[in-house]
Amino acid sequence: MRDAILSIRDRLDGFGVFLSGLCALHCLLGLVLVPLIGLGGGALLSPRVHELGLGLAIAVGLVTLGLSALRHGRLRPALIGACGIALMALALGVGHGAREAVLTIAGVGLVAFAHWQNLRTAA
């Protein structure tokens, strides 16, 4: 049973890294491709996509980073992740645009790094 729980936690950390990358990619594409070539502006820059994606990333980050801290007792990844989650939450409140993208990319970068640290600790 314990091994199954650890496997799920590791998968969630891996999913967290993947989801963080998708968030960063979404922001970068929104800042670069849409203004330059008008590609997918309606769907890609929809505030709803951003809100749902960040909400999911925040939830996965909170659960996984919290479980990992309880498992291995290292608070550093959880604290780094908490800073990233705070930036992501702040991004939800600044409105769609460059400030939001910068906050999101910084936040997901910190969260991805925290997930990566958890995966290294588990190995």
Rank of each mutant, 00 (worst) to 15 (best):
L75H: 13
V111M: 05
D3M: 15
L67S: 13
L33N: 06
D13N: 13
G53K: 15
W116E: 01
R76D: 11
C27R: 09
A4S: 15
L29S: 03
G81R: 06
L110E: 00
R99C: 02
T104Y: 04
I80F: 13
A69H: 12
G107C: 02
E51Q: 15
V32Q: 04
E100Q: 11
G16F: 06
A112V: 03
G95F: 00
A24I: 13
R71L: 08
L44V: 11
C83A: 14
I58P: 03
G95W: 01
R99Q: 01
L44Q: 10
L92Q: 01
I8F: 15
A78F: 15
H50S: 08
G16L: 06
R2V: 14
G42I: 01
D13K: 06
S46I: 10
G84Q: 05
R9P: 00
I85G: 07
A59Q: 05
V111D: 01
G84C: 12
R76W: 14
L33E: 02
R74V: 11
L54R: 11
R9A: 14
L70V: 12
G81I: 02
I8G: 03
L52T: 05
C27T: 06
I85F: 13
R76M: 15
I37T: 12
E51A: 15
D3T: 15
F18L: 10
G38D: 04
V108F: 03
V108A: 10
D13T: 10
G30A: 06
P77F: 09
F113W: 09
A24C: 08
L33I: 02
A57G: 05
L75W: 08
I8Q: 09
V102E: 01
L65G: 11
G30F: 07
G30C: 08
H26K: 09
M88F: 07
G16H: 08
R99V: 06
I8E: 05
L44A: 13
R48D: 11
A106G: 03
L45M: 14
P77C: 12
